[in-house]
């Protein structure tokens, strides 16, 4: 059976530090757009840390929630694409074939999570910043959509390596850039088709919820909700 890649994000551990955001930029050749374009809503962050304030001073709480492509099993972005640029891979990823994309942006509208980004202009890197570009990831031209791939280049590299060594991919062997960077270990990546994998075990947690799961999108990212502390005094 094909792997079904999934992720668990423990909101109790996430500190909102944004390491994942920068790691993703570095890994996936996401161009920066500059102040003017950022002001016009064209900044691209395949993963973002959503922040919500609750309550009023002095009883304020803050919640962080990293949001990336949820790699839905019933992804609204996929059927609407007229050119099969967004499609479902055999390993359950919401693939985006850049070459096929003609830029209808329908997928971005259909996505309830707003995690698809459009190249309003050709990406630019002031020389020699271009030397940083990751050769394993293609640079996206003007007019096409891009999105989180669960670092498919890392997945493929590990799968090829495992195959060469005639073994299965080990649990935890693959780490997308965001997961790799996460200091408090809030993100776990792995194979949901293996019930023993860490990600499967955590996804079954009673704290587990799916973001906008009521829309029937069947996301493959599970969020573990924060728990309020209930220590000895309050027990």
């Amino acid at each position: 059976m094909a792997h079904q890649w999934g992720m668990v994000i423990d909101l109790d551990r996430c500190t909102g530090c944004a390491a994942c955001v920068v790691a993703c930029h570095a890994e996936n050749n996401i161009s920066t757009v500059g102040e003017d374009q950022a002001a016009r809503g064209r900044a691209k962050h395949w993963i973002r840390v959503e922040r919500y304030y609750e309550g009023e001073f002095p009883d304020v709480r803050v919640k962080f929630m990293p949001v990336l492509c949820q790699q839905c099993d019933a992804a609204p972005c996929e059927p609407v694409c007229p050119t099969f640029a967004s499609y479902h891979t055999i390993e359950g990823l919401n693939g985006q074939v850049y070459n096929r994309c003609i830029g209808t942006r329908y997928c971005a509208n259909a996505c309830p999570y707003n995690v698809r980004f459009f190249n309003f202009y050709n990406p630019e890197w002031d020389k020699p910043l271009n030397l940083q570009l990751n050769p394993d990831v293609s640079v996206r031209s003007v007019g096409i959509m891009e999105k989180c791939t669960f670092c498919v280049q890392r997945i493929k590299a590990s799968e090829i390596q495992a195959e060469a060594e005639k073994r299965a991919v080990k649990d935890g062997e693959i780490q997308p850039a965001c997961v790799q960077s996460c200091s408090p270990h809030a993100m776990v990546f792995g194979d949901l088709s293996d019930p023993q994998s860490e990600v499967s075990r955590l996804a079954r947690s009673s704290r587990g919820t799916k973001l906008l799961g009521e829309l029937g999108t069947q996301p493959k990212v599970t969020y573990l909700q924060r728990e309020s502390w209930h220590g000895a005094e309050n027990a």
Binding site: V80, P82, T83, G103, T104, I144
Partner: peptide, 27 residues
């Protein structure tokens, strides 16, 4: 379109790309 010069990819024709348009798409 983001890439209007490729609008003809919406046409159903046996393309050299070996792919037909996605009939599930309302577009």
């Amino acid at each position: 379109l983001g890439r209007p010069w490729l609008a003809f990819w919406l046409f159903p024709y046996p393309s050299e790309r070996g792919i037909w348009p996605n009939i599930r798409s309302p577009l």
